[in-house]
């Protein structure tokens, strides 16, 4: 191997090392983009769809409203 070729090996190694060292100096975008999460689980039946109401939403709402109002004992004593 000639002396010239021998000299170029450390030079090439140095250039390679410099390239590796500077590789991390590039600009990386630092702004996070937040995304609204979406429910990824199983779908759930609505309360009036299953159970005893069998899709009758109005009946379910009426039953629940009556039950809610029943919590007011002033209604009971009047």
């Amino acid at each position: 191997m000639s002396a010239r070729k021998l000299k170029s090996i450390p030079l090439a190694a140095l250039a390679g090392a410099a390239l590796l060292g500077l590789a991390a100096c590039s600009e990386v975008p630092q702004v996070t983009v937040y995304e609204q999460g979406q429910y990824r689980g199983k779908t759930d039946a609505r309360p009036w769809e299953g159970g005893e109401f069998k899709g009758d939403r109005a009946a379910w709402e009426k039953a629940l409203k009556e039950r809610s109002r029943g919590q007011n004992e002033y209604n009971r004593i009047q």
């Binding site: 039946a45 309360p47 009036w48 299953g50 159970g51 005893e52 109401f53 009946a59 379910w60 039953a63 629940l64 039950r67 809610s68 919590q71």
Partner: peptide, 8 residues
């Protein structure tokens, strides 16, 4: 699931 039975 009490809500589905119209209960609180």
């Amino acid at each position: 699931n009490r809500l589905a039975d119209g209960k609180l």
